[in-house]
Amino acid sequence: MIRSIQKAAVCTGLGLLVQLVAALHWTPFTFIASAVIGLPLILVGGVLFLRAVWKSLKSKPPGQERPGQEAPVQGRP
């Protein structure tokens, strides 16, 4: 899950970066680049993130520990 979220963050960051560069040098070409490269990258990032969260929720049955929580050790109170 962590790796997928990292991939999503990279995609989203690149998309925003493309849009930022386009905004700093606004021409027909950068407008098209912003729409054709920037926006899809952000959408792909969003989809990757949601898919990672969905997979994580699906793979854990209800009641199981969440990431970051320690699993209860048997034999201890």
Binding site: I5, A8, A9, T12, G15, L16, Q19, A22, A23, W26, F31, S34, A35, G38, L39, I42, L43, G45, G46, F49, L50, V53
Partner: peptide, 21 residues
Amino acid sequence: VLLVGLVALPVLLSVGNLSYG
């Protein structure tokens, strides 16, 4: 926070940017 920072905010920003464009 991740949902907002990685999905909601970037999508809103890029939609705003493109509509202005």
